[in-house]
Design a protein around this nucleic acid. Structure first.
Length: 573
RNA sequence: CGGUGAUUAGCGCAGCCUGGUUAGCGCGUCUCGUUAGGGACGAGAAGGUCGGAGGUUCAAAUCCUCUAUCACCGACCA
């Protein structure tokens, strides 16, 4: 490709809407343009990268034995009503009606459609296992699109769905996909880790996320400093403290704490550490009889509630909903900021770390008052202990080896064992060896293709621009002739080299624009092309050209006779 | 969805508070010339419903009301 025939849409200045490096660079390098919130046009250079990523995924999926299909973006609402997600999915599911007033959705994922498909196509255990995948556009009306294509509303996803007669077969394919994902992200040159994950709204039993480690990531990943333990913070169990709860030493004393509403304010007012104050949160729940009720969650003041853990506890509403001020006032007679478990008649769940506190401070359920010297059992006879909090750096690792470290990650893929959740709900059954109808076991496996591009840039850039891993680069080689079209020897050399490399099957961008050298250097470096060759009269006098590696910007003079072979070796052509 | 802020040329911004000529600046774009190894210089030019609607006023980018869109901070997910 010649730049004169290509669309080079680089920007000098950073558009105001971009805050993270990948978003800024994708706009500056001319890979994408924003059409509306969370919606992006992929420009030619960007699309080349996207296609590279898709092809790697396609090759590895095919190698694993998965079969590519294509399902519609638009899906009938009935399928979603059948699976039960019509109610559960919430407003990010974009719903609409067609001219006949029939309800449809824009597919945010395709479990329903693929299960419908499998129920039609698969009748016998002999056809299983089967793994179907597609690379296709999804739409989720995200509450808060941000960071460019990292969290867009419309995005490209590779989603695969596997079908099995038994769990053993499902485990096998799960492991196969796990290994395939490792190969895919390794080929893309990413620094990533598979981590244990929550199954979220898709539902299921067993799951790993593939996380690209980068500071801009929105997820927090928990690692052990001694073992290979790695999990999403949503999942990471905060172990029971080793120490025993001390016997009460103080008596329960009510103290006035005017205008102190947060744990920090109370701690500061009473001149004690936040970790000696118990934090009380009130959420909605259900009694075993099915009655709505309020449940108290008690945590140490310096700890954070883990909502995923909380909503998994039976009897607590999912999604987790906090009681409103009005509800709290009516039930407890006090406002949030002065709440506590002492004297509360309902269900009280105490976090493991909070369960070993003694002589702590907590709200008195009377606005403006707290207790000091509060103690479990003595002052709060009825309570249960659960893991409720986010693990923090320095806590013992959940696997018992070492302590934990927290890092940010970008979730680029996830593998799930779904079980029979969808097949049972939607009647996707097969006849087994005994002629019995059984629902198929299912797995599902996603990769955020557009997101992976952003993740790759987060991990690979410098102050001049993007540094593409070889496998994702829009072009492998950039040729920068200086004085192209004016100097005959430069023009001839550049054209010849260009033709040779094209013949060899290389992806080459020849910058034949009538621009000053600085402009060309800056553009090619911003665009992140891994291998750059500079062809100028000065070095040609010595029968040489210059080779620049984008990775480290190192320039070396290379004899003209060697440059073809050097490049072909670098790009493996 | 809540809170905060923004919307003026392709991009980045000033002007608004205190209403009053032809709405400016930098970058980019086009033409001509000089240049040519790190986003050059000179001369000229094109490009604006001041987000939209309504109102106040002799007069609105500027004041008021409504509305749309975008961004940032908190609850979702590939």
């Amino acid at each position: 490709m010649r730049t004169s025939k290509f669309l080079i849409s680089t920007l000098k200045e950073v558009p105001a809407e971009a805050s993270v490096a990948s978003h800024q660079l994708m706009l500056r390098a001319g890979l994408i343009r924003q059409l509306a919130s969370g919606l992006y046009v992929w420009l030619p250079a960007g699309l080349r990268v996207l296609n590279k990523a898709e092809n790697i995924i396609r090759e590895e999926m095919d190698k694993s034995g998965a079969l590519e299909i294509n399902m519609p973006v638009v899906q009938p609402a009935e399928l979603w009503q059948e699976s039960g997600r019509w109610e559960k999915y919430g407003p990010e599911l974009c719903r609409f009606r067609d001219r006949k007033e029939n309800s449809f959705v824009l597919g945010p994922t395709h479990e329903e459609v693929v299960t419908w498909l499998a129920s039609y196509e698969v009748k016998s255990y002999k056809q299983l296992p089967l793994n179907l995948y597609q690379i296709q556009t999804k739409f989720r009306d995200e509450v808060r699109p941000r960071f460019g294509v990292m969290r867009g509303r419309e995005f490209v996803m590779k989603d695969a769905y596997s079908f099995h007669t038994n769990l053993e077969s499902l485990h096998e394919t799960y492991q196969l996909m796990y290994d395939t994902y490792n190969r895919i992200f390794t080929r893309m040159g990413l620094f990533f880790r598979p981590v244990e994950a929550d199954t979220g709204s898709i539902g299921g039993n067993h799951s790993h996320e593939f996380q690209v480690l980068a500071d801009a990531g929105e997820d927090i990943i928990v690692f052990s400093n001694e073992s290979d333990y790695a999990a999403n913070i949503e999942m990471a169990e905060a172990p029971m403290p080793a120490e025993e709860r001390k016997a009460p030493a103080e008596s329960l004393t009510k103290v006035a704490t005017p205008d102190a509403h947060t744990v920090e304010e109370v701690a500061a007012f009473l001149k004690r550490d936040v970790s000696t104050v118990a934090k009380t949160l009130v959420v909605h729940g259900e009694t075993p009889e099915g009655q709505d009720c309020l449940v108290m969650l008690v945590l140490r003041g310096d700890h954070e509630l883990n909502e995923v853990k909380a909503e998994k506890i039976p009897g607590i509403s999912a999604p987790l909903t906090f009681a409103s001020e009005k509800e709290i006032q009516e039930t407890l007679g006090a406002l949030p900021g002065s709440l506590g478990p002492v004297g509360f008649k309902g269900r009280i769940i105490v976090d493991r770390a909070a369960s070993v506190m003694s002589d702590f401070c907590t709200g008195a359920n009377e606005t403006g008052f707290h207790y000091t010297g509060a103690n479990l059992v003595r002052d709060i006879p009825e309570f249960e202990v659960q893991d409720l909090r986010n693990i923090v750096a320095g806590d013992p690792s959940p696997d018992g080896k070492g302590t934990v470290i927290l890092k940010h990650g970008i979730e680029v893929g996830q593998v799930f064992e779904l079980g029979t959740k969808y097949s049972a709900a939607m009647g996707a059954t097969v006849l087994d060896e005994n002629g019995k109808n059984i629902p198929m076991e299912m797995g599902c496996y996603g990769i955020g293709v557009t997101r992976v591009i952003a993740a790759a840039i987060e991990q690979n850039h410098d102050d001049r621009g993007i540094i593409w891993p070889d496998a994702l680069a829009p072009f492998q080689v950039a040729l920068i002739p200086l004085n192209y079209g004016k100097s005959a020897q430069v023009t001839e050399t550049a054209d010849k080299l260009y033709e040779d490399l094209i013949q060899a099957g290389a992806e080459v961008l020849l910058d034949d624009r009538n621009e000053r050298p600085g402009v060309k250097f800056a553009d090619m470096e911003l665009l992140g092309i891994p291998h750059i060759v500079i062809i100028g009269d000065k070095t040609l006098q010595e029968g040489a050209v210059e080779y620049e590696a984008r990775k480290d910007l190192a320039k070396t003079k290379v004899p003209l006779t060697d440059i073809r072979n050097l490049l072909r070796e670098k790009i493996g052509k």
